[in-house]
Design a protein around this nucleic acid. Sequence first.
DNA 1: CAAACAATACTTGTATACATCTATACAACC
DNA 2: GGTTGTATAGATGTATACAAGTATTGTTTG
Lengths: 228, 228
Amino acid sequence: MAESHARNTGAHFVYGELKRRILSLELEPGERIYEPAMAAALQVSRTPLREAIRRLISENLLEQQPTGGVVVPVLDDAAVSELYDVRAALESLMAREACAKATAADIERLHGILERNAATAAFADEAMKYGVALHAAIAGIAGNSWARRFHEQVSSHMQRYRHYTNNTQERRDQALADHRILVEAVASGKPDEAARIAFEHVIGARDEALRAISGGTSASSGSTPAAK
Amino acid sequence: MAESHARNTGAHFVYGELKRRILSLELEPGERIYEPAMAAALQVSRTPLREAIRRLISENLLEQQPTGGVVVPVLDDAAVSELYDVRAALESLMAREACAKATAADIERLHGILERNAATAAFADEAMKYGVALHAAIAGIAGNSWARRFHEQVSSHMQRYRHYTNNTQERRDQALADHRILVEAVASGKPDEAARIAFEHVIGARDEALRAISGGTSASSGSTPAAK
DNA sequence: CAAACAATACTTGTATACATCTATACAACC
DNA sequence: GGTTGTATAGATGTATACAAGTATTGTTTG
């Protein structure tokens, strides 16, 4: 899902492994990474490890401190809003671009994904999966490699905050409804409308996440009624 | 303009130097970079050079070939459109966010920049400078570090295509007019309008660039009348 | 006893040496 | 003659050794 054609090099393996540990919070936010120890743990020398670290820094998945150390960025509630906003802008753009480029076959594929999305709306994992698939399909149709690249970075990073998001049945139903009218707009070639729908779709998710954060600070269980 | 707090390390110097050469086309598109030769030319060992190269790869300013070599990406007309689109989406977002966060002092600053922009609209360099300053100010008000980061990357990359863009008097006048109503929208707190203006502003520049490309293929001299 | 200083341990940054892999040129064979 | 195989030259990937800078500890001094 990350890189299209990756060479089978040690540095690449280390990159993937570190990224996984960062996103899964296995490497705790704020934790410092010491090169010798980490290199030993991953059974490589410092050289490929450093390359992986540098790459992760430039993707904002690690942070270089002015003094010279490298730390896992701390979780920051304010960043959640920023990430959602950027994601909204990018998905909105891609939805707009997809309108102009979608072929009949593309529309067919979107409808197919939508059906499976609807069929599995009751199951969190499956619904999430097809939601992601739908966005990926739209991104593919849009064909804007820069937008896709940035979107992947943002999406990756958001995984660190996934404990905040309550994936409720309500949310899934709303998402499905949004997806329906989004595909509708793309199919009928209405770029402005598609862009608006995609934007507001993500903003809706953002607002719900923000309510979850300000309400129960941790990954609360039930559905916080969300008073506005 | 690039990095806020950069450590005074060799790898960082190499990064800046390589980036400059890539953006200025001093390193020609398609050219391959051989580490030993480049390291010798820059008077460093391969180690810091490789770190700089890796970073530039992850910023899309260099390209790793499946076989293992590293090349300067070729100029691609299709990329111009993509870059403008992403820039439009990001500036649009930041304009929207700026509406909610701008203080009276911020508005004052925007007006100040606007005045200097207007006063220098006849001079390409100056007008460009204040245009950039205006966008930077809005980005600062928006305060979305991710959007700003991506925007910087896109803006940097677009420098490689600057030979395509005809900076005509017409364009500068149009840009100034756009900037005026954009600041107006931000000042009066109309996020949707500000977002729309910012978006269309960049799209307008994009369309003009695309006309310049499809018209005179190279960096043509005069103003191509731009028939639609 | 607190504060400043010095010495030490350790981490990062860099250079170099080595191993692995790729590409190219030449030769042999079909 | 074209194609395939092979050898060789060279580039990339990795490991290790070294230099430079940072933090921490202990000591000394006001």
